[in-house]
């Protein structure tokens, strides 16, 4: 829509501008030890540039079929991305954890739109319900009062933002290439094409051709069948891994507590 208003700018330029704006925004927003008015100005500028970056991405994005679907996807994706950025740049780790919970809500919405009904719910239950609460418990145990000095500075914010921008640029280039032409692995010679054309008449149309989610009906039942049928051994291994992590963390806690006591006593002496 916006791309049609600005016909003179190519999508590639728009995307590059968006990624640059995103990197500059993250650089300004990451904690840098500034204080007072300079800090506030940097944050305002950072969020403003973040909005510009998001607009760039939205302009180069693809339009979905129906307005409702697009509105829902845009809402949840924006929630996920903005909350993710706030997780990264929050000074207070408690706020970072809360923003991460918000990002999880957005990601679970994206998964639901993409047809991962079970995974959308499992993300909320497992991540927001268990893992995030564990993070918050550790924060309550270990967080000093007020903002610690190491929460107010970051190591090499500029280089980190540039690294993220380069990665994002490479990823979006390769994603954009998916639509323009098939990847090199799938360019086929004549015989393979004939074989494919042959199989196309007998096989049902692929999900991508129709845009219909082939995994939608009886979703959870079929996912469970797949998980406990084809991947049964992996499920067992995952169970063993969970058990090993449980025992391992208990062992580390109990042994570390014995080791840490003399260290704490040494610290307390002078």
């Amino acid at each position: 829509m916006i791309a049609s208003i600005l016909p003179s700018i190519s999508p590639g330029t728009l995307l590059a501008g968006g990624i640059t704006a995103a990197a500059a925004s993250l650089w300004l927003l990451l904690p840098s030890g500034r204080s007072g008015a300079a800090d506030r100005t940097a944050r305002w500028l950072g969020w403003l540039l973040g909005i510009v970056a998001l607009a760039g991405f939205l302009a180069t994005g693809h339009r979905l079929g129906s307005v409702g679907e697009e509105a829902v996807f845009l809402t949840v994706a924006l929630v996920a991305v903005i909350s993710g950025a706030a997780t990264v740049v929050s000074r207070s780790p408690v706020y970072a954890a809360i923003w991460f919970a918000m990002a999880l809500a957005g990601v679970s919405g994206v998964l639901l739109v993409l047809g991962g009904q079970f995974l959308g719910v499992a993300t909320i239950v497992v991540y927001a319900g268990a893992i995030l609460v564990m993070f918050l418990f550790v924060l309550m145990l270990a967080q000093p009062a007020g903002l610690a000095p190491y929460d107010r500075v970051s190591t090499e914010p500029l280089l980190a933002a540039v690294a993220g921008a380069v990665l994002l640029g490479i990823l979006s280039l390769s994603i954009g290439r998916l639509t323009a032409e098939p990847p090199a692995c799938c360019l086929m010679g004549g015989t393979k094409a004939a074989l494919l054309a042959d199989s196309a008449t007998t096989e049902p149309p692929a999900a991508a051709a129709t845009g219909i989610d082939m995994l939608a009906d009886n979703h959870v039942a079929r996912l469970g069948g797949e998980l406990f049928g084809r991947h049964l051994l992996a499920v067992e291994v995952a169970g063993v891994l969970l058990l090993a992590a449980l025992i391992g963390s208990i062992a580390i806690v109990s042994r570390g507590a014995a080791d840490a006591e003399p260290a704490a006593a040494r610290r307390a002496v002078p």
Binding site: T87, A96, S154, P157, A160, G164, L167
Partner: peptide
């Protein structure tokens, strides 16, 4: 990735 590289907590 940016967060892992930059943050110290």
């Amino acid at each position: 990735l940016v967060g892992i590289l930059a943050r110290r907590n």
